[in-house]
Design a protein around this nucleic acid. Structure first.
Lengths: 244, 244
DNA sequence: CTCGAAGGAATTGCATGCAACTTGAATGTG
DNA sequence: CACATTCAAGTTGCATGCAATTCCTTCGAG
């Protein structure tokens, strides 16, 4: 609906128009029919995690529908699913808004994360599937290179990939699902801890300690190191959140 | 829609008609407008967990819609949400079916469960919120009484309540969510382990050991006992699944 | 000036219609 | 007889329309 017939002078785009294009960029190109809802769900999730849809922003079905150039139905379903994941909060007949995390939520999150990442490291070490150690080392090498260039955004992406590789190596679908949800929650936090002075080098060392234990199939050490890694991550996170 | 004008002789109900009534019973009575989808989602979830919708059963949107006397829209949304939870599997343009758990899934589930229940017990013990110990003891007493009557179904319900109370006492929203998903997965398993000879008494003793540690605010012991409880539960579960 | 109530605009909630896709069976061909 | 091909029935996927509900503004009374 709502065409570009805005009363503004041609050549000047309204704010909503720009926002709409940014959102549309998150849609997968090859959007075949039959997966529109999944695409919209993923796009909105990424938009929220990237901060394009900031916390406390109101999400209107029709607005999002015109932005994505789809009908309200897939948007509506996507909002329900994201509400189940805890990313948005819905209020009946009024709208949905991006949920924000309290400090208590962050603490609770890291408590669970320490446990689950530790479990993932232990399982991965015990199984030690073909190629896992190489993959971990490869990602960590890429991280070292990115750290040298001070490319924090890239570093952050690689860090996520490292943890994903580790939990995939654990080969436990439930653990995978829960750690995926944890990742979504962590990515909602503003900024990253990898920009903190000296943290990047620490992370590299901690990752190496875990990878070493995995290579030696030492489950206990892998768990201990992974938990220590997460405790340290929590400390830095709190410093970043509180200290500014 | 679809009235009772079935071509069968009056007085004889078709099988689908009976099934529809059983499903409808899961809907909350005071279904106010604005919560139809949530009601349908919950009803379908409970129906699946109770085995009314058995694994490998095909779930047709229109069929369920007429059964619940709603339109296809809320049913459709419910199916998507249940698919996210892993309870059903959808195939595009063909239908959704109730997912079944493989033996490997069960093992993976209990591995994660051991960790999370242990964490919940530790956190609950450290916090030891007002009234928690009393609630645990109360539920356990009710379980003892039910065990005496050999009321297995009631015993199972109380057992779920005990674990829910413990994790609520941990006061960690992420832990609560994940253990809720674990509970859904466990409830999908056929039968219960509490019918196994002698298991009910064991469970009572193990619960008491955890509750005692919680009372004494001994986090380490609580975690150790809870993990032992889950390991034993897994053993019995495997015996029930394999031994018949 | 403050507080309360009523009305209207905006938004979501659900129902339904049509198009696209999948599947299986029937048919024709080698 | 085996196999590929076509076609038709059935199902879901998405778009849209209408009704119910909410919230905010405005108006009136104290």
């Amino acid at each position: 609906m709502q065409e570009d017939k805005a009363p503004t002078t041609s050549g000047i785009r309204s704010q909503s128009e720009e926002s709409a294009e940014r959102l549309r960029a998150y849609l997968h190109q090859g959007a075949v029919r039959g997966r529109t809802t999944d695409d919209v769900t993923g796009a909105m999730r990424e938009a929220i995690l990237d901060g394009v849809l900031p916390p406390s922003a109101w999400l209107r079905e029709s607005e999002l529908a015109t932005a994505f150039k789809v009908s309200r139905t897939p948007v509506r379903e996507a909002l329900k699913r994201l509400a189940d994941e805890g990313l948005v909060i819905k209020t009946a007949h009024h709208g949905a808004m991006v949920a924000s995390l309290s400090l208590e939520d962050v603490l609770a999150l890291y408590v669970v994360r320490e446990d689950l990442e530790g479990l993932a490291a232990r399982l991965a070490a015990v199984r030690c599937p073909e190629g896992l150690v190489e993959e971990l080392d490869e990602i960590n090498a890429a991280m070292r290179e990115a750290a040298g260039r001070e490319a924090v955004a890239e570093l952050s992406k690689l860090n996520l990939a490292w943890h994903r590789a580790l939990r995939t190596g654990a080969a436990n679908p439930y653990l995978e699902r829960f750690l995926g949800q944890v990742e979504h929650a962590v990515r909602r936090l503003p900024a990253t801890t990898l920009g903190h002075p000296g943290r990047a080098e620490e992370v590299l060392a901690e990752h190496e300690a875990v990878a070493r234990a995995v290579r030696e199939r030492d489950g206990e050490t892998a768990e201990r190191e992974a938990r220590a890694h997460m405790r340290r991550a929590r400390e830095i996170r709190l410093a970043v959140l509180l200290g500014g």
